[in-house]
């Protein structure tokens, strides 16, 4: 990549990330509502576990799941569906005639999305710790941060892969995202240890980066957590591998789907 191209990529990334970070802060109700929504979901599962009479360590698992859920939702609705929404609002054609690469828009969207979601996730985590008196081990905090960042890299890579599909498809892809959102969230072990899924379902769930990422985080932050899927080191390696694979697929898919969408005149096709 030439210096000029790299500069353009970085400028585009910065511009898109800026809008995502600061635009989302302008309306206080958005932040409050998303934090409250995450908190209520977490509360539901904490009390459910209390009803079931499981150990207190399950509250810690649920709080960590609640911390990761906003990222999962941001990947699905803020990255994967974004090109679809840009198309519906009429911005996509402007983006495509500009010299800025489409991939830079999406990477910027991911970086900005991850940063603004971080604030909400930290708020959910804070409330979870404060209200449910959950304690985490901080001995491995730097390693946990590394696992978290690799998980985000992998998750947002998957989001960019799906954004290509959304670029070509319309309401059918949106409906599909709506359909798979809850089952995917459940299968990734957000609110229970993923090992209980059994080998078959776990094999599918492992393709969702949140599954192994959460399992590794639980091993590092919840000392009494014993029902792990794999050792966290292996999970970190798999997540890094998944992230790279998703990045490669995303780069290829974006080019080929953009070409196909141009050829089939679907880039400006709205409300379909």
């Amino acid at each position: 990549m030439k210096k000029k191209q790299l500069l353009l990529f970085l400028r585009t990334l910065n511009a898109r990330a800026y809008v995502r970070i600061f635009g989302q802060m302008r309306e206080a109700t958005w932040v409050v509502a998303s934090v409250l929504g995450g908190f209520f979901t977490m509360t539901t599962y904490v009390y459910l576990y209390r009803t079931l009479g499981t150990g207190s360590e399950f509250s810690g698992l649920v709080v960590l799941g609640g911390f990761m859920t906003p990222f999962f939702l941001n990947v699905l609705w803020g990255v994967a569906t974004q090109l679809y929404w840009e198309k519906e609002m009429g911005n996509l054609e402007l983006m495509l005639v500009s010299p800025a690469p489409l991939s830079a828009f999406l990477v910027g969207l991911s970086v900005g999305g991850a940063m603004h979601t971080m604030l909400r996730s930290l708020a959910v985590l804070f409330f979870g710790i404060a209200v449910f008196k959950v304690r985490f081990a901080v001995l491995h905090l730097p390693l946990a941060l590394l696992v978290f960042l690799v998980t985000l890299f992998s998750m947002y890579g998957l989001g960019i892969v799906f954004s290509s599909l959304f670029l070509y498809h319309g309401r059918d892809a949106w409906r599909t995202a709506d359909l798979v959102m809850e089952p995917t969230n459940v299968l990734s072990g957000t609110y229970f240890p993923a090992r209980f899924l059994g080998v078959g379902l776990l094999g599918i769930a492992a393709l969702i980066p949140t599954t192994l990422g959460l399992d590794a985080l639980r091993q590092l932050l919840v000392p009494s957590f014993t029902v792990k899927v794999l050792d966290w080191r292996w999970e970190l390696l798999i997540l890094a591998g998944l992230g790279l694979v998703f990045a490669l697929i995303a780069s290829w898919a974006l080019r080929s789907v953009e070409y196909k969408a141009r050829r089939d005149a679907r880039l400006t096709l709205r409300w379909q």
Binding site: E27, S34, G37, F40, T44, Y47, L48, T51
Partner: peptide
């Protein structure tokens, strides 16, 4: 004009917790 549907999610998420849909509210 700028209210997000997250507000609906939060409101009805709260009602879901309290309504006893998933577990008996006697746990509260």
């Amino acid at each position: 004009i700028k209210l997000d549907v997250d507000v609906v999610d939060a409101l009805f998420g709260g009602m879901f917790v309290l309504s006893g849909a998933l577990f008996p509210p006697t746990a509260f």
